[in-house]
Design a protein around this nucleic acid. Structure first.
Lengths: 128, 128
DNA sequence: ACGAATCGTCTACATACGTAGTCATAACGG
DNA sequence: CCGTTATGACTACGTATGTAGACGATTCGT
């Protein structure tokens, strides 16, 4: 049972920004990724190139040669990443229980009325 | 309005384990902290000492001389830390909206029946 | 009062991360 | 066909982090 490709290597904060760009649209060339993130994060091309290489090394994104350049596309699903990160947080801070997290967000008024409405809807849906 | 003491410096994963020990009970000496975490994380005393120093530098824990040794106690509330981390996650992965996080946890069946019941109770309480 | 145990500080070092420069090469424009 | 340009690979470097050893001071036991 070989280790899952994307299991061991964590995606860092900066790398995550690149992943978001690729999740939003892919495949993209390095230059196109830069177009989408360099301004916001105040990065230069070399930075994006490095992050892309590291993500390729971590097998989080794959490359396909296209003409003279590479096109990059995510190899892991955003929902998997998001789910993993959420689970890690819940495990680490709330003993694996989601209710306390929810309680915390509620207490901090981090929940908007819309959030509440949506969550109620979800609950109703799950009940069925 | 001077920068909040504990605002800038992030607490790392290893440091967090030490914080948990201190939140569970404090004040503690370095040796007592080690008693509570060294076994589980397979650390040696020097490691705990280093982590404690770094936490002191970050003003996340405070020291009070007690006899010949120091007693360490948390300077930041666990609820503040937990709240901050939760918020960071929600901001980074869910655009600041808690509902999608909740949806994700629900979808992944990361929510037990107990969780659901608790959350419903919380919702009812908030509505009042 | 003196040696042994203990404690905090300083130092160390490997890896990860954030950020960026250099360079050879390959392709495109003219 | 050749120079320009864009691209990926390699290198670089400072800081954060994980982990721990060395050491000097201090205090406790006897």
């Amino acid at each position: 049972m070989a280790r899952q490709d994307n299991a061991g290597d964590r995606i860092s904060e900066a790398e995550h920004a690149v992943m978001e760009a690729l999740w939003e649209r892919s495949p993209l060339s390095a230059a196109e990724v830069c177009d989408r993130v360099c301004a916001e994060r105040d990065w230069s091309m070399p930075t994006v190139k490095t992050l892309l290489s590291r993500l390729v090394a971590k097998e989080a994104v794959g490359t396909k040669p296209h003409g003279r350049k590479f096109l990059y596309r995510p190899l892991i699903e955003r929902s998997d990443y998001v789910g993993g990160e959420s689970r890690r947080l819940v495990d680490r801070l709330f003993g694996g229980r989601a209710a306390p997290l929810f309680a915390h967000l509620a207490q901090e008024e981090a929940l908007t009325d819309d959030d509440l409405a949506e969550i109620e809807a979800l609950l109703r849906e799950m009940r069925r």
